[in-house]
Structures are given as C-alpha cells and as structure tokens.
Nucleic acid binder design. Structure first.
Lengths: 152, 152
DNA sequence: AAAAACATGAATGAATTTTTGCAAATATTT
DNA sequence: AAATATTTGCAAAAATTCATTCATGTTTTT
C-alpha cells in the first residue's frame, strides 16, 4: 500500500474520468506543471498503482447481444478440482471474466453470446460440461453502469 | 452491427491486450503500414466499436482489500422503485458497478471496502438502507481473471 | 473488359508527448 | 537552526505519434 497526497488522487480521478488525458492536460487542471504531473504519473505507474488501461469494446456492435452472469457451485472441490475447473473455464472463448468467490457460489462467470440460442449452446456444450460443475444459476444482464469507485 | 475482416479483429485483439499501443506498433505486429492501421483504428472509433478505454487501478495498493459482489432482490419493484433504487445506489462511493439483471436477483453490485469491518459499515449503513431492498446475498472475491473474450 | 470505388504503402509535416537538466522552493530530519 | 532530501517550475531536447498527400495496386461493379 502506498500513500498518496491530494494531488495524486486528483491525477487518478482525472484519469478515471478519461484515461487518454496527457500529463500536461492533467497538470493544467490540477494547477501543477506538466513535468511535475508527468513524474507523478510515472511514479504511479512504477508502483503499479496504475496497472494499465483496458479497452472498452461495444460488444453489441460486434454482434454479441447477450451477456449472462453465471454463479457456479462445484460438486467436488478439492484443490485439484479448482485448478482443473479454472483451466477449463479460461479456455472458453465466450467467457470474459472468471471470479473465484466465497459464498453461495464458488465461481462467477461473465459470459457473452450472440443471442439466446447461442447462449444455450455455450451453456450446454461448454459450461455444463466443465469438470466438477454442480449447481448453475444465471442472471441475464439488462443494463450496466460502471462508476469510478473510491480513490482516496 | 459492423463486419470486420481478420485485420480489424487483429487490431482489436492487440488493443485488448494493451490499449495504449500506437497505430504504428500494431501495424508492425500485423504486417500492415502505420497509415493503413491508423485509418482502420479511426474507423473503429468512428463506428463506436472502440468505445473508449478504462483505467486499470490496483485497488489493493490504494488500501481497498475487500471486493464483494452483492445480489439484491427488491421488495417492491414498480418502475419508480427501480429508478429510486438506481439513483441511490449510484451515489454510494464504494459501489463500482451496478448491473440490472434478470433472474434470481434484480441487481448485482460490485462493492469495494478497506477491510471487513469497513465492508460491514457499507453494508449496514449504505446498502441495507437503500429504498426497496429485499433480499441481499453476498460473495467475497478471492481472485479474478479477466480475459479478452470473443472478438470475431 | 473498362470504370469506379477502395485500401495500401512510402514519404512527410505537424503536433503532441515523453524525457532530461537545473536552480529555486518546500518540507523533513538532525 | 542547519543540513538533507524531496518536489517543483521553467526550459528545451528527444522521441513518438498522429494525420495527410499521393501514386499504385486491388477488388468490385457495371
């Protein structure tokens, strides 16, 4: 954990709002010079606080209209079983996210498909055949809002 | 929906791997020139297939060690109730994602907290007091893997 | 087969961004 | 209060990157 001052948090907030901003532009907004701002950004990158940036793809436009969240309870879950399961899940192209969780389910998956029939195919052929799968619960995504979340 | 050729998909795959790559670098990897690559990227942006990019922050390093997914079933859910709920949820700083879903729950939230006591505070003071909240189910995140997902 | 529409590469100019000194100011430690 | 370390702003160079032009080659249409 790293301690940041108010300026660092301002930089993170600015970047969270628009990840493409340059050091000069952020500096202008925060009232510091471009090199000062740049050096701070570099420090945040070196510290891996800024881990990178992820692409925001419009899956609709790519023909994937259905997003489903799956909660999966494993039938058997020794150590081996978890590794086997994860390895197999990661190989499914329609899976965007694999979350190992504690609670009612063991894993949560974010899965996309072209349409409902396509999703049924993925579910039957890919998901239900995963090693160790027990209960599966599904939630279809209607809409989603991503927020900046807490920074300081 | 837009039809992409193999080169476009290669560009999207390269950017999914690292969103900061320049047109020249991507072109080099795909074996096309920088202007050709740049024009294709521009077209993808103009078409809004490339919707933007999001910052990848290391929340651990910022002191947020706990991530919890909440499944929420509303007690009453007329149209008004949904709007009220969403408005209130969006105002909670610890909430990173709000997903309106169909299935066992009505909403799924991604919530971060500094530690478990902090999470309890958020849950009791912020979440359970939301308008219309019925059942709440929680899953604590252990580990997460984000994959590129399908592109073509 | 000719014509039109389109994508490409090479070259290039403009613009932006990333870096690097260095002296002054600020903060921290002794 | 002196000494040390850190951070800053200014200036400027170095390196990329973005964006356009133009001639050529390719595909599609007529």
């Amino acid at each position: 954990m790293i301690d940041l001052d108010e300026t660092d948090r301002g930089i993170l907030r600015a970047l969270a709002d628009d990840a493409t901003l340059s050091a000069g532009e952020i500096g202008r907004r925060l009232g510091i010079s471009q090199p000062a701002c740049w050096r701070r950004i570099k420090r945040l990158q070196d510290n891996k606080v800024l881990a990178g940036q992820r692409l925001d793809l419009d899956l609709q436009k790519l023909g994937f209209t259905v997003t489903v969240f799956l909660g999966i309870k494993l039938a058997t879950k020794g150590r081996v079983s978890l590794d086997d399961f994860e390895r197999a899940v990661i190989a499914i192209p329609e899976v965007q996210t694999v979350q190992h969780v504690l609670g009612m389910y063991d894993y949560r998956l974010r899965v996309v498909a072209r349409d409902i029939p396509d999703f049924e195919r993925v579910l039957r052929r890919r998901i239900m055949t995963l090693p160790g799968v027990g209960n599966v619960e599904a939630n279809v995504l209607l809409s989603e809002e991503r927020l900046a979340g807490p920074i300081g």
